[in-house]
Write a protein that binds this DNA or RNA. Sequence first.
DNA 1: GCAAGGTC
Length: 949
Amino acid sequence: PKISKFIPKPPAPSPPVSPPHPHRRVPPLAMHRGGGTIRVLNVAEKPSVAKAVAEILSRRSGGMQSRAGRSPYNRIFEFNYAIGGQACHMSVTSVTGHLMELEFEDRFRRWHSCDPADLFHAPVRKSVPQDKQPIRQTLEEEARKCHWLVLWLDCDREGENIAYEVVEVCTGANRHLDIWRARFSALIDREIHEAVQHLGRPNKLFADAVDARQEIDLRIGASFTRFQTMLLKDAFVIDVTGDDRNLVLSYGPCQFPTLGFIVERFWEIQAHEPEEFWKINCTHTSDEGTASFAWIRGHLFDYASAVIIYEMCVEEPMATVQNVRNQEKLKYPPYPLSTVELQKRASRYFRMSSEHTMKVAEELYQAGFISYPRTETDSFSPNTDLHTIVREQVPHPVWGEYAQRLLNPEARLWRNPSNGGHDDKAHPPIHPTKFSAGENNWSQDHKRLYELVVRHFLACCSQPAVGAETTVEIDIAGEQFNASGRVVLAKNYLDVYRFDSWGGTLLPTYNIGQQFVPTTLTLDSGVTRPPPLLTEADLLSCMDKAGIGTDATMHDHIKKLLDRCYATKDENMHFSPTNLGEALVMGYDEMGYELWKPYLRSMMEADMKSVSVGTKSKAEVLESCLQQMKACFLDARVNKAKLLDAMGTYFARSNRPPNETQSPIEVVRPCGACNESEMVLKRRPTGDFMVGCRSYPQCRSVVWLPGSISEASVSNQVCPTCGPGPFYKIQFKFRRRDIPPNFDVDHLGCVGGCDDILKELTEISRFGSRNQAATPARGQTPNGVRQGTPRQDLHTSFRPAGQLNNENQSVMHSQGFRSTHTQNSTDAGQVLCTSCGQPCISRTANTEANRGRKFYKCQDIDCNFFKWEDELENATPRGRRGRGSGRQTPASASAGRRGGTQARGRRGRGRNADGGMFVSATGDPVSGCCFTCGDPTHFANACPNRGRR
DNA sequence: GCAAGGTC
């Protein structure tokens, strides 16, 4: 839009303006250049701002008139006002956020109308959608009557972009409009008058930055969403919603990184290997009570060292008090309340979802009880009349007395709120705006949220809590221990902020030099624990930190993950990925893309910033970003097998190969998980065998079989040991090259848990090592069914043996081959041609000399690349591959969480809790005996005589 | 049927 060159006269003191006569008609259109009244159209981002601006500006001229516009929500307020000494007739109206939407042109709108890759350059257009047409009409009608357009949109990038949408509509109706921008950061008199008297021009660069963001979001989102939806929906039975016709597997630059946070934490938990540690604890009971002293070393992972130190302490147990410190400690009230904090605290205190919190907060805001709930600001402007807000709460039956005390100077409870350091220049922190002791139509959540806002506000205006902390340091045989206690001297803000607590334990009195014999002195063991699943509050923090979404949209992205069945939330507000969510992230991760990480969004944000300050142009950013994303898209399409593989881990193929659908159903045993169906022998599209419940996907019980099996069929022999049965034995044939030489290729085995040979081959297949004991992986029952995983389904936390086995094929690195994975291959047979880099095709020779021998050749017929599979493996024997030093992929993490347990978790510790002998890193058993009672059958941590000594 | 961003 063209900006008029007309510059208004410099502001001069406003002349007195006569109040509008209630019966006088609004002045007719006047030519301002002739010195008459200027008609000014003012447009705000939302109705509430239009009203507030109009109220403030009309106060001097004796009030305003209000009339309806075409849209029922966006009224028009009218009054007279002088800008720079020039008499103006002001009309103030509003939009509701963005007036326009960016869309592809019609011929690209239908999903099958084009190749999704075309969406990176398909023409797009911005237009006013149907539901915004009434607002558009109002703007056009008003614009025709006006000389000036003053834009009162929020002073951020989005606001500037909306400003240009308004300009486009208004100048379309009246191309002579003079366009001005009012810049304000709070809806208070001084700011608003200041803004209108110092009008500027809108900032095109800010609007450009948003245009670029919108276009990138639309193109990336639509292309990837269409691609992955069409690819995966056809290939698998994805039964997450019950009706997969409406299933959309969306991709978005905010939703995917949000999902990434959830999946990453889930993988961290799965990769965690508990490690035992040891610590010495000391207590001392006297007339005044008991003090618990903690070892200053914290804990030691080395058992022998811990025992030696412990024995020293036990030999010379006399404790000497070395130091007693008394300190005053303060616990400060929270910063003023921003949106993200409100969501996090409502989630933590009331278990309300962020989405629900925003809905309730919006209702409280609409009804006038709290201030605008979408704000990043966590500091009050010095102009805010905090005392008045507090005074309004005095009548409240519960916290009124506290408010009264806060206002009483003698109580010395008042303290000006601290500054959290954020200011969105548009809204104050969330605070109560109207007193209520609870309204009739309020739900429990309305009451809770209002209470939180009020108590938070009162707490912000209060003195910190004061405590006296005592720390006592003692020495036993040269080892240091300490204990600390706290007494809360003044609760102050904690009196009203019942959500915070500051526990205190009283410590008996000790004096320097005092000596005592401990009441107890114990060597205790513990194990390291994995981090917890992310809570909604954690997730909001992650997003906030990485800049994913805005305060107004973060809860939407979280909700989208739940709606799309990418994640679930349990009753404790903990998020876990679903199979679908995990498979999608795994697929992209294994393709080597970090599309599920926050970097893409951060990069885009940095580019937007560059556009908004003019160091890069919109066109430049669009071109480079879309070019990169298109390359990534095309590459992802070439590597779609990885995405399919990842999905195949969890979902059944819908277009199964004929040999699978035609093979007879071979029942192995009744299903012990659902107790309704049978477990049947199945062959996956990858060729691997498994025994899974026939009721899949309702029941997901599964037993994975070694990846080294080439053939398997259920026999009619029933296992005499396993039950409740019958458990039919399976006739296996193993690939010679995949099993140790001392094993037979033919084996009649049982999957009920009695078959050591099968277990051992499963282990070898899974971990790639012949040295490790054939014990089930952690959390697995002997028959291989995992129990008690964080999620309900049974096999989500481990992969088919075949897939893990494939990891070993990354040994191809050492022969000059390159896995298609950028850093760490987990994919079978993905050998790249060394001359042209294309993935090779795998074939089996049928010549007399090499019948049955597998080989790889380049898919390009003009390329002569050729390699026998067994030659790849001979150079670096299977199962000898070290752990990659690079980033841990999910597959390597999962390998770690199984195979690594023996190697890393239990070095040199003797017998484990199950009574099994520990093995050292070399596989040798560790000898030793309990230092407490000398019994060689257990160590001190499991000693039945512990504490009796 | 697709994104994220405004806001009702």
